[in-house]
């Protein structure tokens, strides 16, 4: 389906290496005296599915919000497709239209139906025609199983349904990267599965995703890399096999053992 519409020639001869989409250099963020991110370095390649784990308050949300520029970093740089992010509002808007975000609290537009939610970005930001925006919205709503609900308002949906709509809304922009901030944390347990399944199938399509999550099983099965954050640092950046069996960081070992213990108490699996 996807043709090389921009007609850009592949710049690198080493075709085996996928392109880098996002690179973060020495990214730091403070709120007043409180330093939340401390010189974060990492990069995201096309097709990567990166899960970000870490305890509460370690700065995971702040990292995603900096990447989407909902927060401005106090120090450090973010590169998108090799270019440093522009500072003007226009440049930021353009960049954001290509790097979508799915929130823990859904943030669906309450004044719009499901269909309008999915057409808002394509109409107001990408300026697609009504028909095109509509068709795109329907296609993506179908893919998350929410097409029958196009006339519903967010308040009329369950949490899992809202989050699936929010994902469809993000997909309608045809983003290069989709950021997820704990997409299942606000859901009732029986609804977590439906959202994770949608995300799993997205991962298979090759969409680049950055996912903050507490779902270990999901991180293990789906991610190409797992990052672990602690007190504003990335203390582990490893493929899932290594991360879950043989991590370098003591913090990760501690975290995993606590998780396994909790899992046993809950009698899961």
């Amino acid at each position: 389906m996807k043709t090389n519409e921009k007609g850009s020639k592949p710049k690198n001869e080493k075709a085996s290496k996928p392109e880098e989409i996002i690179r973060v250099e020495e990214l730091s963020k403070s709120f007043g005296e409180h330093q939340v991110l401390r010189k974060i370095d990492f990069s995201v390649k096309k097709g990567d599915v990166i899960c970000i784990l870490g305890s509460s308050g370690s700065g995971k949300s702040t990292l995603l919000r900096c990447i989407n520029q909902l927060e401005t970093q106090t120090y450090g740089k973010i590169y998108f497709e090799g270019k440093e992010l522009g500072k003007t509002q226009k440049e930021i808007n353009r960049y954001r239209s290509r790097v979508g975000m799915v929130f823990q609290s859904f943030n669906l537009f309450n004044n719009m139906t499901v269909l309008k939610n999915c057409m808002a970005g394509t109409r107001k930001v990408l300026h697609l025609s009504k028909e095109e925006a509509h068709d795109r919205a329907i296609a993506h709503l179908k893919s998350v199983g929410m097409a029958p609900f196009i006339n519903a308002y967010p308040a009329q949906l369950s949490g899992g349904q809202k989050q699936r709509v929010a994902i469809a809304r993000g997909l309608c922009m045809n983003p290069d990267v989709l950021l997820f901030d704990e997409p299942t944390s606000a859901l009732d347990p029986e609804m977590v599965g439906e959202v994770l399944n949608v995300m799993k199938s997205l991962a298979k399509t090759g969409l680049t995703m950055l996912i903050v999550t507490h779902e270990m099983g999901f991180a293990h099965d789906v991610s190409s890399r797992v990052l672990f954050m602690d007190k504003g640092y990335i203390v582990e950046d490893a493929p899932p096999e290594k991360f879950f069996t043989n991590p370098d960081s003591g913090r990760v070992k501690e975290f995993l053992s606590r998780y396994i213990q909790k899992d046993k108490e809950n009698g899961d699996e």
């Binding site: 975000m101 929130f103 943030n107 107001k124 930001v125 922009m173």
Partner: peptide
């Protein structure tokens, strides 16, 4: 969150 949802998809403030 309503505003952030809009900004995050590239809408101007």
């Amino acid at each position: 969150g309503q505003r952030e949802g809009a900004l995050a998809m590239g809408m101007s403030p």
